[in-house]
Design a binder for these strands. Sequence first.
DNA 1: CTAGGGTTAG
Length: 601
Amino acid sequence: MMQSLHPNSNSKFTPLMMANAKAILSLLQGCNSMRKLHKIHAHILINGYQHNPSISEKLLNFCAVSVSGSLAYAQLVFHRIHNPQTPAWNSMIRGFSQSLSPLQLQAIVFYNHMLSASHAWPDTYTFSFLLKACEEAKEEGKCREVHGFIIRFGYDQDVVVCTNLIRSYAGNGLIETAHKVFEEMPARDLVSWNSMISCYCHAGLHEEALKMYDQMRISNVGFDGFTLVSLLSSCAHVGALHMGVQMHRFACERRLVENIFVGNALIDMYAKCGSLASALSIFNSMPKRDVFTWNSMIVGYGVHGRGDEAITFFGRMLMAGVRPNSITFLGLLCGCSHQGLVKEGVQYFHMMSSEFNLKPGIKHYGCMVDLFGRAGKLKEALEVIRSSPSQHDPVLWRTLLGSCKIHRNVEIGEMAMRNLVQLGSLGAGDCVLLSGIYAEAKDLQGVARMRKLIQSRGIKTTPGWSWIEVGDQVHRFVVDDKSHPDSREIYRKLEEVIHRASLVGYAMEESSLVAAPESNTQEYCWETSTSYHSEKLAIAYGLARTPEGTSLLIVKNLRVCRDCHNFTKFVSKAFDREIIVRDRVRFHHFRGGHCSCKDFW
DNA sequence: CTAGGGTTAG
């Protein structure tokens, strides 16, 4: 009788017409689309369950939180609840916290409403969701304010709430505050440790991240795949191969190498630490591969200047049915430019948009400038900048300036310089580059002008550093560093190294005209002959502290200067060592007096 | 069955 009153009486939900609350609940549980939800909602109304708290909460939760839900619908449902309790508020706050910006601010609005206009009290869940919203919406002030409430409610004793606090602070750039919360929380579990490490990793504080691991071991919480992935990423960034190998061993022991996240992180670590062969062997052993897997290999080959192999892997990637993204093309273009594969680079640049519907970004244009510039086609490089949508980006002009240095082009170099001045982003490195161009053209006045420019404008400089990992320690050096505990020994060793390198042909460039990219202070800027660049110190230390025949890996934040590049070539010959230098932009493999970049960088 | 953690580029 009742069935005939209902228009949907033929639908498969018909039996529910007489269903009890329990049946409706279980149907809500299995709901996976708004279409089904509308039907279930109709049944709820017909059966008079709209005021049943557990049903309306479940309904609300689905709309607000599920990927196939609808926040707009959730709001309608919410406003029909007479006296919403904490779980209902939580659903709304959670829903908005995971929505697109700037909608996340609505999570905070709901929370404020909850405090002022309802009888429901926030609980630990409320704060977890709310902190997530503060993190996503970059609401630093609100984050601090919420922290105050958390303390007043006594929820600062809760691990999950504290972990959310850490992420929220770190996401707002307050990494030290985040660490303070971490230190002061009553107990730390595995997730809290992993969060703290990943926050450091994201903030670029890789040495801090790696240090956390030592403390983590003492605290006996163990580790898992999440731990390894963040740590491996930090190892990759700082070039800590030995530590990375140790992580690899842990991964094997715990059967975590089969985890795709761990495998991808291992590939990246080995590639960034100069060991492409190991990266490849991980790649070959992976049971499943995704876009990260392929990109890590392609980018790895790219930064090592092996464009042909990057291209080969790109082809295999397509064959495997994995869709490339913009990072894939960055790796490809980088490889092409460093290997001088101009034709191929151009082809892939066009392929991005024509075949994969990917819009080239500023970095892709940067690669194109580099591709032409490095190959000596400076006019074409200039044309790329002119035709790019981001012709007012200093990065492009800076890249062009670098190419002018390689090809000793004063005219276009000066043009690049003028644009950098106009864009108000002239850096010391730019002056040093142009000065180098003048020096090679024997234009002493030009060199003097650059020197004056730096001094008169008080141009901000990037301090240069190099680091080398010896044993389980990362050692960091700056120009003329005397802060290392073994400083005296290092300088003695360096004198010996220079002597032995000179026996096989090395001659230090005495000319004060040789401007060094590492020069970070005015004193050292023009006096190469009296200063020791950080990588020389790192190399000396590495030679002194590692067994004969082992290869050295140096990581530095700036480009290698010509003298150091030359020096390293002769050292590799004199000491019969492989020396790998990871530059700001690429890898140099020195062996037997030659470099893999073929003096082209 | 209301909560917190992961990789490539920059």
